[in-house]
Amino acid sequence: MRTARYALVLGGLTAFGPLSIDMYLPALPAMARDLHAGDATLQLTLAAFVLGVGAGQLVLGPLSDAFGRRKPLLAGVALFVVGSLLCVVSPSVELLIAARVLQAFGASAGMVIARAAVRDLFSGIAMARFFSMLMLVTGLAPILAPVLGGQLLSLTSWRGIFGALAAFGALLLIVAAFALPETLPAHRRRPARPASVLRGYLSLLRDRVFVGYALGLGLSFAAMFTYISASSFVLQGAYGLSPQQYSLVFGGGAVGLVLASQVNGRLVGRFRQHTLLVTGLLAGTVGALAMVVASLSGLGLGGVLPPLFVAVAGAGFVMPNATSLALADHPELAGSASALLGVLQFTVGGLTSPLAGLAGGDSALPMALLMAALAGLGLLSVGTLARRRGSDQLAEVGVA
């Protein structure tokens, strides 16, 4: 029961990012009219959030290594609530952008500290199983958020969406304050001096095993981000699906991702985590390549959807194992390591996913090619940089 409670609380904290990015997307046209802003200017609200999340993780990760997890976490969630409320009352797009930066900085606390807290509480096989359990909560967030935002938009204005985010943050602030204990004891904390923080980041970047797993995770996340950002245009534009049919297909992919993560949780302990991670990356690569073949062969929607399902489900093996293995050897730098993992995911995903849209939505080929390249590069990174592994064979350890 305690593990399930941790999964719900930490899963909710990691959902701040996808909810804040995706929930208001259906409201962008209405926001442009209300704020008298162009589409390009309004897109800066998304860019500001992504940059704020990256900067916040780099700052709050090391701070949580120095002051424990609870204080930076609760302060960050409170800042998220304040930033969301400022979004509600913003009279101009310029003030909305500034409020989004505050909101993002606060959201980054939940994302980066949740991963670090998992490393504090678990190790070895138990950590990988917990990350698989966490995906029950976090795996659906980026997929359900636009649907939830659209439903809220039928009941309220775009300001109501940010009000709902503020309410969600306030609820999690209360729950975390009472249900989440301090997970980092005082004797394991590190000083927060800039020189010490920089040395910590450099030591992580010099560890080729950490870099290999971090790149594998980031590139797999980028392939998933490509799917999320491009699939609507491809499946509706190239294959003529209605919005309702597209939502069903998209939901089917979400179910596959979550089911794969739960199968992974069952298999951890019977197979090496490194092997399960490589299996997931192979599934992503082979599935995307099969999509390329189906697109070039003109097999239609029936030929594209099965390999697309495989490619998406493969991430259910990649994300829990890559995260667990990347954090395994650095318990003393869990906050900083979690920050680098988060920044890499958002940076690689944000930079690469728009490439799939350059060729338009007339074919699944550009999306499939980019997904195959990203998953293949992730497989190469893990295979060449993360060849040494001992900690993934640890016996299961319970809650600390």
Rank of each mutant, 00 (worst) to 15 (best):
L296R: 13
F168Q: 02
P72E: 14
T41S: 09
G265W: 02
T138D: 01
Q57L: 02
M291L: 08
R70M: 02
A288N: 03
S154R: 15
L277R: 06
P320H: 10
G160I: 07
L165M: 15
P72V: 09
L171T: 15
L152V: 12
V343E: 05
L173N: 14
L153M: 13
S90K: 06
G361D: 02
L58G: 08
G163N: 04
L305M: 04
G56R: 04
G253R: 00
G349E: 09
R2I: 09
L46A: 02
A98Q: 02
F346V: 15
L358M: 13
V77C: 07
V175T: 06
L282V: 13
E396P: 06
G216H: 05
K71A: 12
Q262W: 10
V286F: 08
A373R: 00
S261K: 03
A48W: 02
L217T: 05
I21N: 05
N264H: 09
S295R: 03
L46Q: 10
L46D: 10
G163A: 12
G383W: 09
L74I: 10
Y6G: 01
A334Y: 11
F233L: 14
L267W: 12
V175L: 15
F162E: 06
L73K: 09
E94F: 06
R5G: 09
A116E: 12
F168W: 07
V101Y: 06
G256R: 12
T384N: 04
V88A: 13
M224T: 07
F309W: 11
S196Y: 02
A32P: 02
I113T: 03
Q345D: 07
G56P: 11
S157F: 08
L379Q: 06
S203P: 01
F225H: 03
V312E: 06
D392P: 05
L341Y: 05
A114Q: 04
L165T: 06
A117M: 15
G212L: 11
A368E: 01
S242V: 08
V93C: 08
A55Y: 04
I113M: 07
G251M: 14
S132R: 11
V234S: 07
A30P: 00
A98W: 00
T156M: 13
G316E: 08
T41L: 14
L58I: 12
L282F: 13
P26V: 03
A40T: 14
M133H: 10
